[in-house]
């Protein structure tokens, strides 16, 4: 479960988030959309404990941030548009390093993940020799290695080829089926709205709309998005 109340973040004198009230139930899949500069990544960085809010409160997986950030991180997986990997380590070494940091002792899970993301044959190759899409595939394994309850995705399709994108679609749908809580930032309105149960529109530092997929047609959602963003 993810919850924020009157969440605000300023960078110097510039307000980026201006009182975000958000509630995502456990097991819900929500897409977060909005124009560039709306504060989407800032919101995700606060929820992932990488940034502190200037004002307001946030709770992730039942843990209050920032006071219980370490406990929250144990239940949190993040897949960002940057792969967050080490180029001078092999694919397997990267996963083994993160497994140790997350307290995952099951070595077989590393192999299973490498196979799942299609990198088992390249497990002993340095990550810096990988294409951008292959790095993103490995980033998916890194983010989900510890089987998190809450998954935050920030433009996770960046660099993926159609096959990689289909793989991520399948993984995301499976996570949703297993009732993991998912919050995904995307600029692809149609894709995001088709995958998620609910779409949030963040504009001008606030959540301006919350629309359920089963209550509104995709074309109508696109019209509402335009109206909210331009309004």
């Amino acid at each position: 479960m993810i919850e924020t109340r009157a969440l605000a973040k300023n960078f110097g004198l510039k307000p980026v988030l201006r009182g975000v009230d958000l509630r995502i139930e456990a097991g819900e899949f929500v897409a977060l959309m909005g124009p560039n500069g709306a504060g989407k990544t800032t919101l995700l960085r606060i929820l992932s404990t990488l940034a502190r809010p200037s004002f307001g409160a946030a709770r992730v997986a039942g843990f209050l941030l920032p006071a219980q950030a370490e406990q929250a991180r144990r239940r949190l997986g993040v897949i960002a548009h940057q792969p967050l990997l080490y180029g001078d380590l092999t694919a397997e070494e990267n996963l083994r390093f993160y497994a140790r940091m997350y307290g995952v002792s099951d070595g077989a899970r590393l192999t299973e993940w490498l196979e799942r993301v299609g990198l088992a044959a390249r497990r002993r190759d340095l990550v810096r020799t990988f294409s951008r899409g292959m790095q993103q595939r490995l980033a998916i394994a890194r983010g989900l290695l510890h089987d998190p309850d809450v998954v935050l995705l920030d433009e996770p399709y960046t660099g993926l080829d159609p096959d990689g994108a289909a793989l991520l679609d399948a993984i995301v749908q499976e996570l949703a089926a297993r009732r993991r809580t998912l919050l995904m930032i995307t600029h692809d309105l149609a894709h995001g709205f088709a995958l998620a149960e609910r779409a949030l529109i963040l504009a001008r530092g606030r959540i301006e709309a919350s629309l359920r997929r089963d209550e509104i047609a995709p074309a109508e959602f696109a019209r509402r998005y335009d109206a909210v963003v331009k309004g």
Partner: peptide, 22 residues
């Protein structure tokens, strides 16, 4: 484990979430 739309499965933890450190 749950079957995905592509017929593959997500590797699942033995205990969820990651087992707390000893």
């Amino acid at each position: 484990m749950t079957q995905s739309s592509r017929g593959e499965r997500l590797p699942a933890a033995n205990s969820s979430p990651a087992a707390p450190a000893r």
